[in-house]
């Protein structure tokens, strides 16, 4: 699989950081920097960076994928409720699979997602590790 370097570059702020979009109209918050509020469609939005600390709400184990990072399988993917209240999906790293449980405290870390092997761009992004 080969991603596009310019495509990644354009969205890198959402890859490198946990940015939260806060709606100026309905007041709801959602993860990622978005031009409009997904709840009410308002363009009156503000952005804030998450402190990166949260709790695992749900998780599952992934055994199969085809994105050039299969050398890492199996992996644990979870839904994390950030301290700011929004939920985000992310891989849970630096754990034994048996250690993951609901309510586990985690913090955001920068990790490699995939790379265009063997000589392509490395795509970095946010995952979560236990605190």
């Amino acid at each position: 699989m080969k991603l596009s370097a310019p495509q990644f570059w354009r969205v890198r702020e959402n890859q490198y950081k946990l940015v939260i979009t806060i709606c100026g109209d309905c007041g709801k918050k959602v993860v990622f920097k978005r031009p409009t509020c997904p709840y009410c469609g308002s363009g009156r939005v503000e952005y804030a960076e998450s402190a990166g600390v949260g709790v695992v709400e749900e998780f599952t184990k992934v055994y199969f994928k085809r994105d050039s990072s299969e050398d890492r399988l199996p992996e644990v993917v979870g839904v994390v409720r950030l301290g700011e209240g929004v939920r985000v999906v992310g891989e849970i790293v630096s754990i034994r699979d048996s250690e993951v449980r609901e309510g586990m405290e985690v913090e955001a870390v920068l990790r490699k997602y995939v790379s265009d092997d063997p000589y392509g761009i490395i795509y970095y992004g946010i995952k979560f590790k236990p605190v």
Binding site: V93, S94, V109, L110, R111, K112, I122
Partner: peptide, 13 residues
């Protein structure tokens, strides 16, 4: 370090 770690990700932390 794990598969998805390198000097950049550790240095970032």
């Amino acid at each position: 370090a794990e598969e998805d770690e390198d000097s950049v990700t550790m240095g970032w932390y």
